[in-house]
Write a protein that binds this DNA or RNA. Structure first.
Length: 293
DNA sequence: TAATCGTGGGT
DNA sequence: TACCCAAGATT
């Protein structure tokens, strides 16, 4: 029989109160827009690398309207080296949609958040919870790992999210919305700081004596091999090189400036075509290339 | 559904 | 050193 929910949630809420990091998007004066920007930037990207870029974005574009008024290429440029630059493009598009559809205010309705570009199930739930103190199951990679260990007794969750995981998350979600919102950020923080993917700090865990994985003797992951991401020599690396040229250039560049950063012409052209198709690069009539307007 | 999409730091 | 993987979304 599972440990009752409150015997799990209460210690983790207490742990969070004592151990939460001071992050700028969690302060009392953080705006929903600041929360939304942080959530997009944090997708697949560590907090440490997000912090300086987030500060610069919020200083420069304190509202969705401010960003929406800029060329999308400026968002791509200010994205810097956070990676997955389509996120910058989608965040710019989301800002425009927020201005057009929601009067410039980040919506507080889950379905309306979900309808914005670049916002999926996780991010919609996260913004509704963290910016508006609502009650939603917030399932990110941290929470999925914590629940897999604590409740299912396995080291890692399945590759693709299952309905069973959603049911698990909803079963633990406190009834009171503000408490549920605090729980969501608390269990995520536990996954980020203690119940980490590798070398978990179980000695610091507030629910170690209620952990199914611990009770089972912390068995090693037993399942299909988890796919590693190769990078060197891939189209992704090539796209990154090409886009870096445009980010670092103050003006449109000649084709030659792109050619010199990647030797294989076939792969280079394919990658450039992909960037253009994605709207990350704008081919000008004079043969030069620029970030999009 | 599975592949694709950047980058840098921890172990 | 080579991996591993980090607050996912989209097609």
């Amino acid at each position: 029989m599972d440990t009752p929910a409150h015997l799990i949630t209460a210690p983790i809420l207490d742990w969070y109160a004592a151990n939460a990091r001071d992050l700028p998007w969690r302060t009392a004066d953080a705006t929903p827009w600041g929360v939304l920007v942080s959530e997009i930037m944090l997708q697949q990207t560590p907090v440490k690398r997000v912090l300086p870029v987030w500060h610069e974005w919020l200083r420069r574009w304190p509202t969705p309207a401010a960003l929406a008024a800029e060329p999308s290429g400026e968002a791509v440029r200010a994205w810097g080296r956070l990676g997955y630059p389509r996120r910058a493009l989608r965040l710019h598009a989301a800002a425009q949609a927020i201005v057009e559809r929601h009067g410039g205010e980040v919506p507080d309705v889950h379905a309306e958040l979900l309808a914005l570009p670049g916002i999926g199930a996780y991010t919609a739930a996260a913004v509704a919870s963290f910016a508006y103190r609502q009650r939603h199951a917030v399932l990110d990679t941290n929470v999925r790992r914590v629940l897999a260990r604590m409740r299912t007794g396995v080291e890692y969750p399945p590759k693709a999210q299952t309905r069973a995981e959603v049911a698990l998350a909803e079963a633990l979600l406190p009834v009171d919305p503000p408490t549920a919102a605090r729980w969501s950020v608390a269990v995520m923080e536990l996954g980020a700081l203690v119940c980490t993917a590798r070398s978990p700090r179980c000695v610091d865990c507030p629910v170690l004596d209620r952990c199914a994985w611990q009770a089972a003797g912390r068995p090693a992951y037993d399942g299909p091999p988890r796919v590693g991401q190769t990078y060197a020599g891939t189209d992704r690396q090539c796209r990154g090189r090409l886009l870096a040229v445009l980010r670092d250039a103050p003006a449109p560049v000649e084709k030659g400036a792109l050619d010199i950063v990647w030797a294989d012409p076939v792969q280079r052209e394919r990658a450039l075509d992909g960037l253009i198709a994605d709207g990350l690069v704008d081919p000008l009539d004079d043969g030069r290339y620029a970030l999009p307007v």
